[in-house]
Design a protein around this nucleic acid. Sequence first.
RNA 1: GGUCCCAUCGUCUAGCGGUUAGGACACUGGCCUCUCACGCCAGUAACAGGGGUUCGAAUCCCCUUGGGAUCACCA
Length: 466
Amino acid sequence: MSTVRTRFAPSPTGYLHVGGARTALFNWLYARHTGGTFILRIEDTDQARSTEQSVQAIFDALKWLDIDWDEGPFYQSERLNLYNDYIDRLVAQGHAYYCTCTPDEIEAMRERARATGAKPRYDGTCREKGLPLSEGAVVRFKSPVMGTTVIEDVVKGHIVFANDELDDFVLRRSDGMPTYNFAAVVDDVSMEITTIIRGDDHIMNTPKQILLYQALGRPLPVFAHVPMVLGNDRTRMSKRHGATSVTAYRDMGLLPEAFINFLARLGWSYGDQEFFTRQELIEKFSLDRVGKSAGIFDAVKLNALNADHIQAARPADLVRHLKPFLESDGWNTQDEAYIKGVIATLQTRSKTLKEMAMQARFYFETDVAYDEQAAKKFLKPNVLEPLKQLKEQLAALTTFDEKAIEQVFVQLMETFQIKLGKIAQPVRVALTGTSVSPGIFEIITVLGQARVVARLEKALDYIAGR
RNA sequence: GGUCCCAUCGUCUAGCGGUUAGGACACUGGCCUCUCACGCCAGUAACAGGGGUUCGAAUCCCCUUGGGAUCACCA
């Protein structure tokens, strides 16, 4: 009874994008679900494109998503000895050979092949030469010319490849670095990865990797090729699809819980359920409920799901997520109890944290700026008296809670024989500067007596001055 | 072009031989109401096409069409 070991193996050549995040999530969920081990491996064998910033960007994104790993991070660039050991073995056993053909020669080979309508690939010039190791030589895999290689994929099913479609691909470059297909297999073997979950854009690599497993005499892992995430134009997500970096969604005010919920549901389903907490995802995730067809990333639905998560969250848990947005708007965030109250009034009307911060503006401004239209329409002389009395009565309250506040309004409506609507809008403008806000009793309660009285006074002055 | 994958409302999807083809987002109407939201109710909207298999196909097989992926000393 072997335990599950999964890995996420990004290459640090840019930020972590949506597709990568989902691959990481599925691997993580599967490991957590099965009580297995999740490993992080950085595939930085491309010296030219790998950067330190990209590694950091990947860490940042995983941290935001709260996807943690049990082993690693391992860097392929630090495991060269291991790859070389395997190379020696493969060459010694006749599974690989040195090749001294130059890139120009390879290119010429391809041209010739294309011209005759054949497949453009390595023609095997050095395959049987038994060349010794030499400066600048690459190592190629001696790929079988006959037969077939089969993938038994848990999501895609049975996939057959004719071996003559494959060519003698490079295992180690002339600069001594291993290539992706080789390093990935050596690592997956040595790290004892049991289940490889990755995007289905890797299907074409899989037969090569299976051949390598066989040459190495190792048992095959379980393959699960999950469908890709596409942009609105149905092509692979890339820069031109707008925000594809995971952290961009954080900065747009998405909740990590909502984001992983959305990512999980894109390609995986659990009956009709749409909303999942992180814990539910771990409990319910399984590979056999992963679909086969690619899905389009729908930002509108993501926002709706985010709204659901904001609404379902406890205000106290939202505080730390909202604070950065409040701070970037220039507000003081010392008083967390106050922020908690603010959040409670805004949860049902914000789709994102950024939006919530915007809507929270009036709670933090020291001098409320009136929206011209709203002030003109509602702060009129005819409400001067009711407003004045309201201010006085609210100022006189000893227990400033929603119930007491509502009582004040009830009395006011009676004495002036007006409906709540007549007085609520002027008060709303006085307190928030606009005609749109959370419920009037709620905002009075949260703002607190001092702010409310001061703002009503300001409104009275404004009316008097008209 | 070769190879491989995929195909249910606009989008995400349920469905795993017999359903009025369900849900969610979006959209449209209504209710609620102190504004805006939330919530609730209702509605529009899909099995790509053609052949089979079967008493019976969205479900199984084949073909066509469409879309995607991949063809490196990148991962």
